[in-house]
């Protein structure tokens, strides 16, 4: 997955090895550390399982998630509790909770991964340019970052959704547009110190262009930070998507989303607590898994970040 270009202008200058990411035995070391860390193994396994469930949802899910069943409501019109027919019960619209949960994993992962990728791309570009260029470019970009950062992130997303209208695509764009600032700040800080290193000076002396220096000589060093932030960013994006859907302005109905399931369940939770517990537990486990995987990657890739937050 991560194949870094050789640094052809490296000259073997001390301290220019990006990280262990580029080393040939990286995967073996990663696997070894995973085997020694039960918590990390469990969280990575859970993420793999979640991806499989999301990708193969149509084959795994027992029913169609939007189908309303004639036997999905009790005689008095209340949701049916967990049982042999509906494993996790039904919701107030007589739909199967388990099937909606499985399809909800699709939405969460899709929004989480796409929004985070976009946010990371923006963050890296802004941060790298600001750090590398310095001067007025840096001031303008970083003050812009400060401005976006000063809006509370959820309120900012809600306000943007009000402008763009709720749809899955807009949810992804809005989260990406609100979240890039965190990575931009970190990347800028790292580029500030990286650009003073000898291998950058060496490349400059040889007449390598700025864009190529950023791409080939600086970016590889940023990969550990980007990977760690992206993993933690997926957890944040999933929570943001759930919050937006909970407020009724996220993924449009009747598509299943965990946040929307919790929001709908809250009206019936006194009589049908499973409507709240099932999507809530799914959300907690997913966010937890990405957070723990992020911690593990931090330790694995970049010992320096361990001292920070």
């Amino acid at each position: 997955m991560i194949n870094l270009p050789e640094n052809e202008l490296d000259f073997g200058i001390a301290g220019s090895e990006p990280t262990m990411l580029g080393q040939p035995n990286f995967w073996r070391r990663a696997l070894k550390s995973l085997m020694h860390d039960g918590v990390a193994l469990a969280s990575v396994a859970f993420i793999v399982l979640l991806v499989i469930v999301a990708v193969f949802a149509p084959w795994i899910s027992p029913y169609n998630p939007v189908q309303q069943f004639a036997n999905g409501l009790s005689p008095v019109g209340a949701p049916v509790g967990p049982g042999s027919h509906f494993l996790l019960g039904t919701d107030s619209a007589a739909r199967d909770v388990l099937s909606r949960l499985i399809y909800g994993a699709r939405v969460s992962l899709l929004v989480g991964v796409v929004a985070t990728s976009l946010a990371s791309a923006i963050g890296v570009v802004v941060g790298a340019i600001a750090g590398y260029a310095g001067g007025i470019v840096e001031s303008v970009l970083m003050r812009l970052t400060d401005m976006v950062l000063s809006f509370p992130i959820l309120l900012f997303c809600v306000a943007l959704i009000a402008v763009t209208g709720p749809s899955t695509r807009n949810v992804v764009l809005v989260i990406a547009f609100a979240y890039w600032t965190y990575l931009a700040r970190v990347v800028r800080g790292q580029v500030l110190s990286l650009k003073e290193r000898e291998f950058v000076t060496a490349a400059r002396t040889l007449g390598v262009g700025h864009i190529k220096i950023i791409r080939k000589h600086i970016l590889p060093h940023l990969m550990p930070t980007i990977i760690v932030y992206a993993t933690l960013g997926i957890a944040t994006s999933i929570l943001l998507e759930a919050s937006l859907s909970f407020l009724g302005i996220g993924v449009p109905l009747p598509q299943a989303s965990w946040g929307e399931m919790i929001s709908e369940g809250q009206q019936y939770f006194q009589s049908a607590p499973w409507l709240l517990i099932a999507p809530g537990v799914a959300l907690i486990l997913t966010v937890l898994a990405f957070n723990l995987a992020g911690d593990w990657l931090t330790d694995l890739l970049d010992p320096a970040t361990r001292e920070g937050r």
């Binding site: 919790i262 607590p273 907690i284 957070n291």
Partner: peptide, 22 residues
């Protein structure tokens, strides 16, 4: 701490309302 960091606040709030209030 892991639970506190991962639980969505809106879900936690609803659970508290359900058990402690209702």
């Amino acid at each position: 701490a892991l639970f506190g960091l991962s639980a969505p606040p809106f879900w936690l709030g609803l659970m508290l309302i359900y058990f402690l209030s209702y």
